[in-house]
């Protein structure tokens, strides 16, 4: 069984032109089978990106990519709930990131995203009975744990969050607005200024976290670089690569070369390290440790 690659949804508030340029290039050049599109973090951003998704989806599908429509992780407003319902009615695969979407999508195939709390095989089986077709478990789970769940659920594809700043938390409060002395309701979209999220340092100037509106991510960049045999042994079928502003086509090429056994983990680490990344590489979660621990292939 070969390992498939997924490009996860973009967490950041990229302007429509940037989104278009980014996904057109992915469509043409990135060796990934599946691409997630759609706003996941903040419903207030949707009016900006909504107009460009149809052409992006068309271009990706023309490029032979399977498109997955990702849905909001923390819907509250009626408008956001309606958006989820509409996306769930689509014939394409949909990614569910909040239980809110479950009734609208029940019985039809969906991807269970990392914002759902699927921590064990009993919960995974419940979602599979309701239509889960692929599962990307919460980022804090180790490969061993994901493997234990995957072994117990042989009919679905398990996906590991393998690259990008780690999605660590969501809040009702917008931290970008708070930082700029604004309220969420009149936020002025200051999150747009930080295309990789804004790094949060400790008082001792140590990079630690990153803010992205209502989301908190790691400052460091996840890099799970397991040899393909290890993933196959653990019944892990897919790797999820999460968009950052670095050259994502090169990132996907590195993971493709790693997954096909062309290069070793150590070489993949060196190549990733040569890119303009927003933070150092970590993989502690994959090893069952603190997420911030430096990537071990070094």
């Amino acid at each position: 069984m070969s390992i498939a690659l997924t490009l996860g949804p973009t967490f950041f508030h990229w302007p429509p032109d940037r989104l278009r340029d980014f996904y057109y290039r992915i469509a043409d050049e990135a060796p990934v089978e599946r691409v997630h599109v759609g706003e996941v973090i903040c419903g207030k951003r949707m009016p900006f990106s909504d107009p460009v998704w149809p052409e992006i989806i068309e271009r990706l599908e023309r490029g032979g990519k399977e498109v997955v429509l990702s849905t909001l992780a923390m819907p509250t407003l009626p408008r956001e709930r309606r958006a989820i319902e509409e996306l769930c009615a689509d014939g394409r695969l949909v990614e569910i990131n909040d239980v809110t979407a479950l009734p609208a999508r029940a019985g039809q195939p969906f991807v269970a995203g990392p914002f759902l709390n699927i921590y064990n095989e009993a919960t995974a089986r419940f979602f599979i009975r309701r239509g889960a077709h692929a599962i990307c478990p919460p980022v804090e789970l180790s490969l061993a744990t994901i493997g234990a769940i995957a072994m117990a659920c042989p009919d679905v594809a398990f996906e590991v969050f393998a690259f990008g700043r780690l999605p660590l938390a969501l809040s009702g409060r917008c931290y970008h607005a708070r930082l700029h002395g604004l309220h969420k309701d009149s936020c002025q979209f200051t999150c747009e200024q930080d295309a990789d999220g804004l790094v949060v340092e400790t008082l001792d100037e140590q990079a630690f976290l990153a803010m992205n509106g209502v989301q908190t991510l790691s400052a460091q960049v996840q890099a799970v670089l397991s040899p393909p045999a290890e993933l196959t042994t653990r019944a892990i079928a897919r790797l999820r690569l999460s968009p950052q502003t670095c050259d994502m086509v090169v990132v996907t090429q590195i993971y493709r070369a790693l997954a096909s056994g062309e290069i070793a983990p150590q070489e993949a680490l060196v190549r990733l390290g040569g890119l303009e990344l927003p933070g150092t590489l970590v993989d502690g979660y994959a090893r069952g440790a603190a997420g911030v621990l430096a990537a071990a292939s070094a």
Partner: peptide
Amino acid sequence: CVMMEGRCHLSSYATGRSPNL
């Protein structure tokens, strides 16, 4: 909790231990 409860991994990111786990 300022973060949405049950959906926060900040603690495990730094320490390896978290509310959910």
